[in-house]
Amino acid sequence: MAPTFTTLGYLTAGLYTASLACYLRKLFAEGKWAGRAATLLLAAGLATHYFALLVRAYSIHSVPYQDLYGSTSLLAWFLVLTYLGLELIHGERAMGAFILPLVLLLLMLDFVATPHAAPAAPARGSVFALHVTSNILAYSAFTLSFVYSVVYLVQDRLLRGRRPIAIMWRLPPLEDLERMARSGVWVGLASLMVGIGFGMVVDRQVTGAMLQFDPKVVISFLILGFYVLYLTVSRSPAWRGARASVLCVVNYFAVVFSYTAVNLFFSRFHRFY
């Protein structure tokens, strides 16, 4: 078993931490350099993180999500990748200070998760790899939507309560937060549907059936339904705004439940660690 935290892993964590410090500086004080430095450090961290995953995959002769660390690490990588993409598209750096603690938390999970030998890599080929990768990308996009929705709700409360605080002026406007949360859900839904599609192909290759009953499959379809519901109601008169954001936050608990409890305790053939 290769060391779970390689030198590249530590370097990645260091770069993400430095980037977080710059994002926080940008959020709480003036200075253009802090925002630029934060983005550059995050991009550097993303690159070293990629190589850390790659080195690790080579060393265990398996895909990087073979165990809990690999899986959470890949989720963190996708989270950074998706966030960086959105930051470049929207030119909005304030949210980095809220996303990066989650990224670091995911990386830190390795410290609390006792490393153990992973089971032999299931030889399911590239379709299986795409199935897992798409689903993890979906989880990262839903995580972003969750963060945007939480920030929306806090800011909405401050604005409606007529209690604006200094930091609020540096956050994106409510309208932008709502739009970014919706964009994240669109990306998540598309990835999840692709992931489920590839999963069905893998299922057919392994068992001959297109769809087997498994708690993981059930919860994945439920998540799909919840987020379709969110997209449907988020533009309706009764739900647009804070109520839709609450729904987005609640939906994310289903994602967390699927990623943790279902994987660890309930699923039969989605349990690799």
């Binding site: 604005l159 604006p164 609020m168 956050l171 409510l174 309208e175 932008d176």
Partner: peptide
């Protein structure tokens, strides 16, 4: 106006 921009962008 600043508040308006914080709501609508």
């Amino acid at each position: 106006m600043k508040l308006a921009e914080q709501i609508f962008g």
